[in-house]
């Protein structure tokens, strides 16, 4: 079943036509990745799905309902969470308060269990639960951003460049966590510049080039594709 369906989506920044009619879908239980160079429109696509940007044309359906025009703060209730580019955790709040904000729309009684779940997954966060988030390292901040997004118990989790600026060992760890989350039942839409890593865990992938979808296929197929290799995998 298709959980998220994007049809002929157009997005403009003023007069700049950033997304030029892309269509793709994400099925329940999948990991789907959008890869491409800087400026291809990957983050724009995620931000538009989350309602932070308004599309100038096309359709977006989540579980068969159109979600265009739904305000961003209502997306969480529908089951969509975006872990934004650059993490954007609340640097002046403590780790635990950040997690609480992630569960903002959920009843108070359910929050403690979810926080315990996040701490199980990210023991580092538990050690630092009282610390102000601005004092965390880059890797810890990424874990907090992912933990915070998980707090809303999303059906679809969108991750924008989770590996950005992290040491290789941390990148591996973050991708392991993404795979685990997916196994636990969360559908994942992943945007990455690290095409190698993204394709290796993805069920399916789309290659974005300046606002178009240039290629699509299974993660394994695209890893072997000559044009993808040349353009994104450095070989």
């Amino acid at each position: 079943m298709s959980m998220l369906k994007v049809e002929d989506l157009h997005v403009h920044y003023g007069s700049i036509h950033a997304i030029k009619g892309i269509s793709f879908d994400v099925n329940e239980g999948e990991i789907v990745t959008l890869i491409g160079a800087n400026g291809a429109g990957k983050s724009t696509t995620l931000n538009t799905i989350a309602g932070l940007l308004k599309p100038t044309g096309g359709h977006i359906y989540f579980e068969d309902n159109s979600i265009i025009g739904v305000p961003t703060h209502k997306m969480v209730d529908k089951g969509i969470a975006l872990c934004p580019e650059g993490r954007r955790i609340f640097l002046q709040l403590s780790v635990e308060d950040n997690l609480q904000m992630g569960a903002y729309t959920r009843p108070a009684g359910e929050i403690a269990d979810s926080i315990a779940d996040v701490y199980d997954r990210f023991p580092r966060l538990k050690e630092r639960y009282k610390q102000v988030a601005g004092t965390l390292s880059g890797g810890e901040q990424q874990m907090l951003a992912m933990g915070r997004a998980l707090m809303s118990k999303p059906k679809l989790m969108m991750l924008d460049e989770p590996s950005m600026g992290l040491a290789p060992i941390l990148v591996q760890q973050i991708f392991d966590i993404i795979t685990e989350l997916n196994k636990a039942g969360t559908t994942i839409l992943l945007v990455e510049q690290n095409a190698q890593m993204a394709l290796s865990i993805a069920d399916r992938a789309y290659v974005l080039e300046t606002g178009h979808i240039a290629l699509s296929g299974t993660g394994a197929d695209l890893l072997k594709d000559e044009s993808v290799k040349r353009a994104y995998l450095g070989g």
Binding site: H73, K74, V76, L82, I89, F90, L91
Partner: peptide, 13 residues
Amino acid sequence: EDKGAAQLMGINV
């Protein structure tokens, strides 16, 4: 701190 991120949490800005 961050209106966009707050909206993503479900906070009505």
